[in-house]
Write a protein that binds this DNA or RNA. Sequence first.
DNA 1: TTGTACGCGTTATCAA
DNA 2: TTGATAACGCGTACAA
Lengths: 346, 346
Amino acid sequence: MPGAADGAPRNGPLTLRDVARRVGIHPATASRALNEDTRHLVSASTVAKVIEAALEMGYTPNSIARSLKTARSMTVGVILPDLTNPLFPPMVRGIENALLPSGFTALIANTDNDQERAHAVVHALRLRQVDGWISATATLQDHLFELNRPSSLVLLNRLDENGTPAVVGDDHGGIAAAVAHLVALGHRRIAHVAGPQEFSTGSARLRAFIEVTASHGLPGGEQLIAIGESFGESAGQRALRSLLDSGAQFTAVLAGNDLMALGCYDALAERGLRCPEDVSIIGFNDMHFADRFAPPLTTVRIPHHEMGVRSAELLLALLADEPDVPNRTVLPAELVVRRSTAPATA
Amino acid sequence: MPGAADGAPRNGPLTLRDVARRVGIHPATASRALNEDTRHLVSASTVAKVIEAALEMGYTPNSIARSLKTARSMTVGVILPDLTNPLFPPMVRGIENALLPSGFTALIANTDNDQERAHAVVHALRLRQVDGWISATATLQDHLFELNRPSSLVLLNRLDENGTPAVVGDDHGGIAAAVAHLVALGHRRIAHVAGPQEFSTGSARLRAFIEVTASHGLPGGEQLIAIGESFGESAGQRALRSLLDSGAQFTAVLAGNDLMALGCYDALAERGLRCPEDVSIIGFNDMHFADRFAPPLTTVRIPHHEMGVRSAELLLALLADEPDVPNRTVLPAELVVRRSTAPATA
DNA sequence: TTGTACGCGTTATCAA
DNA sequence: TTGATAACGCGTACAA
């Protein structure tokens, strides 16, 4: 005699059975009444009674039980290099905002660009049965692929070679705008402190830099390019330092991102060079507080929050098996001119 | 005949039954073998066989099913005002790092200091059956209290009047160090641009300011205090502006936090006042990039990451029903002198 | 329109 | 030391 209908009051949190008992119906009916898309199977009057009872009793469905039954955890794993990098919080907020209406929750994990740690956190999230993934890390895609249907993965601020659905900023357009700005200021010898080439953003920006400077007829070649070993400040500093040491002549620097631009500030300072009087510097991303630096950084803005939103929407579409989901979304980049760029003097 | 032992291969992800079948034992035994703290109930040889089989088959336990059975979701809800505020990411990372070894996962939610949204996100997390809460928001405690046993809540960077376990920075010590620094530089008329008084940090710092300036024998009184309506930049700007408008005389400003200090920079700039030549400014928190501002901000550092770690450890202890968990942890604050403070000239 | 019966995958409890 | 059974709370065929 399972599910006996006697009135023994339960002590833990309320269940569907409690609500059903209160209304005097079977739990299954209560379930149907409470559930959006089965509600039409139930008479309007019972629906009303069930909903009222549920509200009154303060019933909340147990999502764990539901997940076990439906085999969907309603969670999304979000893999980041490091939440502490101001680039990511706005993206995360965008993801969370886009996920909320659908009842999905984001699980955030940081890899610190460390393979070991990446595996650990991805494993931890797999144990949690996440339904899908948003990854803003590089070189991890392959591993995620081993473990997931491609249809449940969206890349954010990254591209891979497998055509995995991705949301990125317009690297080429951003670089073009930055170079055009410098050219308009009279700069002709422009250097590029590039990000690591394993990252799609690092290589896309370098490629764009080479193309765009060539199309402007500017002097190019490897002596005006230095590649950092990370996207951090010290990598930017070391890269520009090496350029300075090489004796290359330039009046402006395009940095791989804002953090590297900050490192360029440092490299300049330690040589007694001033920005923008001696060397103009442009960053990429327009991260929070870029307008507060000394000097305020001219940089390329990409829509962080919007990128998060779009990546989540893309994933939601994939999870809903929608047809025709685009596999590459490029969001516009925009140059923000501040005070780290000035007319060329040299 | 439930759980028939015939060899029908399942197609979905592997379950405990698959592993058990492979080894030729009962699923319950496999469960015991795989589980740390029941393993001692199983013979060493079966344990070995089960573990090997599980590894070989790539079995991963279904945490949803486990949660349903154990009534623990192994998740912790983390309530923040706004992840975009650089104060919080390091704390979140601390929380995640401290949680990871215990198998707990953090669910992050932002309130934007909006009651409506706060309720929505807390509700969403409740539905997810989080086992405990870490809250860095103000004025929400009461509501959380209605919904949870007090033993599952830890406050972070906040205090309430109910003695809820909390981890905070040493506001009084930090303010004391800041004032001492200014006094040593010859300042005597020091203003305070205070944070909102509904927040424990806002009121604690104001109280400390009043006490400490008095103990130094400095001029006090309301004309040297302005209270911002939020902890943001524009609130700080408006507050200092009002002080300036009031005609109050001061040579240094203690801001409620770093963001408000940034607002003070703006208020000074719009009056043609220079920092630190005309007015020295000190912030609070030493958030990321405070050293990059113009001028680099002298501020009080609190150990963000450590605070996150400690709050998570505290919560873990509460969840484990450990006795003698401290209900207030105060972490040391340290003054970081940069270039927004200088000897008094006026 | 509603009720019945069952199972999602795991672990707790009891019995052997 | 192991096996059998039941139950966590829910959703869903199927039957009524």
